[in-house]
Design a protein around this nucleic acid. Structure first.
Length: 592
RNA sequence: GGUCCCGUAGCUCAGUUGGAUAGAGCAACAGCCUUCUAAGCUGUGGGUCACACGUUCGAAUCGUGUCGGGAUCACCA
């Protein structure tokens, strides 16, 4: 049990015994004691004064003494300052944390909750390569899945690929017209970039045609509809829907190129999926649901045959769920897919990692599922994240200011190489080991940069700062790990019993307090769907360790007992850093 | 216009189930490598927590309003 919970229990017990009144954890607050005061944890007494009609000094003294005399192994001292009861936890308790937890590989892995969660993330289009925004999405999705796993959930990572529609036909038409039979292989181009280029070519050609029509006297609006290339694209969509063989073949081939490109990027960033859904398979889903909804009177039909739901009672608008021609709209497909996910995996929770521009849409989706009485409705959670902007403003594909994922990864790796060479610490590494290290460091920097901030906030991506390897960064934490490992290559802790009676220096204790908190942080990151808590925790842990490292020698400790104690603290810290970083999708090197 | 999100140091961000004198990093300046990795450590300066009012013993945190930024309100996906 975590220390804060233990304190809570003991306080509730003591209050019951002292005053015969039953309190719950909600009736008072326990905080970590501020560093300028003596003590480890603080009970805020104010909320208890009225129900007990007692002064804060009297309560503090009685409670403090009671706690000390009844739990001598837990508490060693207390003081009261202005209504705050500061408790000092015994060194023996912290050392026991070390001896109990250190050896178990399962520290940081909660027991199974017997629940299954599905995390959907990435969700790319097959007409554009992945960009910086996708990276934030993918890193968040991957991490939140890992965090749930560590919290005891069964997890399924999934991806819905937007592989059909008018926009996909655009790149197909452009390739037919301008491709000259080129392929990614023949041009030595990564498949997703290859196809993305034709999407751009389409837009160029389209704009040219529109301009020509306008120059010929047509109105812009009309020209945009009448442009021959657009008409051809619309025809192609119809042909696709009709399953015309040559269109299907081209579609499959071009999407295949894109998937090869995506897979290379996924592999590079260490991401994968257990299950991939394709919109071409799901876009017709949801029709039965519409029927059910009509029968249940959740939906209603207008004169023209279109089907709607009225959400005005919930503060939203009327929303269409089926067109008058009987086809599904976006929301209907999502309802259908939600049902399919549930049918296939019997999931308890379904997390959607999607940008915050879809907040309204996801709210509607969940509300409709609820109104339809779907058992999975309450388990839907939209992990909404803000846009990634550049210091110069928003990324705009039309203005060519989109930060391409592959380019960015290349650049990050170059910086990692350059910095590593400057420091010259790993000259004995083989070329393969060096490449591995550059990848570990550059990805660590990028992932940490994108994960350390609250997902729901939009963030500024500053190319120079994100590439920084100092301060609050991934490489700082990785470096701390490598430093510890360097010590541990010399010697490991062997005997903690010798140290069990020794007293702890402030920095030793500070480290143990933070280490003990690891599982609490994982749980918090899980329930709040927010990996940034974990990222900031790891940074603070690494900082504390580095202070400790600068202040106290491990190998030349004052006594053999101290040396053993510190070796164990080092191993425990390295373990927590490695495990915690893994939950963020970041690897830690042995040397750097 | 309706709804939702955001506004904390020059910059990027923590801190928000109400708690003590609001914290980090970057940038600037000053120190620390004959001892375990200086991608590190220590210190200095830097704040009207957008603003106003309210609730409270106590507000960056809760409420109302105002200002500023963003998203969304399609028979697009």
């Amino acid at each position: 049990m975590a220390i804060q919970q233990q304190i809570q229990h003991t306080v509730i017990q003591s209050l019951e015994q002292l005053y015969g009144k039953a309190f719950t954890a909600k009736d008072f607050q326990i905080n970590k004691t501020k560093p300028e005061f003596e003590g480890d944890y603080t009970i805020v007494l104010f909320s208890l004064l009225k129900p007990l009609s007692i002064s804060s000094d009297a309560l503090g003294n009685e409670l403090g003494n009671h706690l000390l005399s009844h739990h001598p192994s837990l508490f060693t001292a207390f003081n009261i300052i202005k209504g705050f009861l500061n408790l000092t936890v015994t060194d023996q308790y912290w050392i026991s944390v070390l001896s109990n937890q250190y050896n178990s590989d399962t520290f940081g892995q909660a027991q199974s909750k017997q629940k299954r969660v599905m995390v959907e993330y990435a969700s790319p289009n097959t007409n554009k390569p992945l960009h910086l925004g996708h990276l934030r999405n993918i890193f968040l999705g991957w991490s939140i899945a890992e965090i749930h796993k560590a919290s005891g959930y069964d997890t399924i990572k999934t991806c819905i690929v937007n592989d059909r529609g008018i926009h996909i036909c655009k790149s197909m038409i452009a390739w037919q017209r301008f491709g000259n039979g080129d392929t990614p292989a023949s041009t030595n181009t990564k498949g997703d970039h290859f196809v993305g280029d034709y999407y751009v070519k389409f837009n160029d050609a389209y704009k040219k045609e529109v301009d020509e029509l306008v120059a010929g006297g047509m109105k812009k609006e009309e020209a945009e509809k009448e442009a021959p290339i657009m008409k051809a694209t619309q025809q192609m969509l119809l042909d696709w829907e009709a399953g015309k063989p040559e269109v299907m073949q081209l579609w499959r081939e071009m999407n295949g190129w894109v998937y090869e490109g995506f897979d290379a990027t996924y592999k590079r960033i260490g991401s994968d999926f257990d299950k991939t859904y394709y919109e071409s398979n799901t876009y017709l889903l949801g029709k039965e649901t519409v029927q059910q909804g009509l029968e249940k009177n959740v939906f209603f039909k207008k004169e023209d045959g279109s089907v709607w739901i009225d959400l005005s009672a919930d503060g939203l608008d009327e929303k269409i769920v089926q067109r008058k021609d009987g086809t599904s709209v976006y929301i209907t497909q999502d309802i259908g897919l939600a049902q399919q996910k549930y049918d296939e995996y019997k999931i308890d929770l379904s997390i959607y990692v999607i940008g915050d521009e879809q907040n309204y849409h996801m709210k509607v989706l969940q509300l409709i599922c609820k109104k339809l009485g779907m058992p999975y409705a309450d388990g839907i959670y939209h992990l909404s994240y803000g846009m990634v902007e550049l210091p110069s403003g928003k990324m705009k594909s039309r203005e060519g200011t989109v930060v391409d994922a592959d380019d960015l990864l290349d650049e990050m790796e170059n910086v990692a190489r350059q910095k590593t060479e400057e420091l010259g610490k790993v000259k004995d590494f083989s070329p393969v080991e060096l490449e591995e290290l550059y990848r570990t460091l550059s990805l660590g920097a990028l992932k940490y940069y994108l994960l350390r901030v609250d997902p729901k906030k939009k963030m500024i991506f500053n190319p120079e700062e994100s590439i920084d390897f100092h301060g609050n960064t991934g490489p700082f934490i990785q470096y701390t790990h490598a430093r510890i490992k360097s010590i541990l290559r010399k010697e490991h802790g062997t005997d903690l019993t010798k140290a069990s009676n020794s007293s702890l220096l402030p920095l030793e204790k500070a480290l143990l307090i933070e280490l003990e908190n690891f599982t609490v942080v994982i749980e918090q990151a899980c329930t709040e769907h927010d990996p940034s808590h974990l990222a900031n925790y790891l940074y603070n842990l690494a900082k504390t360790y580095n202070s400790f490292y600068a202040e106290h020698s491990v190998m030349n400790a004052e006594t053999e007992e101290k040396k053993q104690l510190r070796l164990f603290i080092c191993e425990f810290t390295a373990h927590v850093i490695a495990k915690g970083m893994q939950l963020l999708g970041i690897r830690v090197p042995e040397r750097m």
